[in-house]
Amino acid sequence: MLIITRKKGESLMIGDDIEIVISKIDDGSVKIGINAPKSIQILRKEIYEEVENENKEATKFDISILNNIRKK
């Protein structure tokens, strides 16, 4: 993990086309802005993990369904 110190109004670049800007620093929280191409999906990690878990659940398949079809 790379740790970088930034102040309000400063930014950092990821590659050539993603900019992370520190816009506000309050008691215990930081507000950031992200400038990136629209083709890049940006999600909070907890939302990303939720979507990932839902996708895993959706791909689970109950093999007994096939067994029931074969019996008919």
Rank of each mutant, 00 (worst) to 15 (best):
K71R: 15
N35H: 14
D27N: 10
E19M: 10
I4L: 04
N67M: 15
M13E: 12
F61S: 05
K24W: 10
M1H: 08
S11N: 08
L12T: 11
E50G: 13
N68H: 13
S23G: 09
S23Q: 13
I42D: 00
D62P: 01
I22C: 01
I34C: 05
I40N: 03
F61K: 11
E49S: 09
T5L: 06
N53W: 05
I3G: 02
G33S: 14
A36P: 00
E50F: 13
D26K: 05
V51R: 05
A58M: 12
S39W: 06
I3Y: 03
D62C: 10
I65D: 06
I47G: 07
E46F: 12
D27W: 07
D17N: 10
A36G: 02
I47L: 15
E49R: 05
D27I: 11
K8A: 12
S29D: 05
T59V: 14
I34G: 03
G9K: 02
G15K: 07
I34E: 03
I34Q: 03
K56S: 11
R70L: 14
R70D: 08
N53L: 09
N53A: 12
N67Y: 15
L12Q: 04
N67W: 15
L43Q: 05
D17G: 06
I4K: 04
I42M: 04
L43M: 11
K60E: 11
A36W: 00
N67A: 15
K72A: 12
I42W: 02
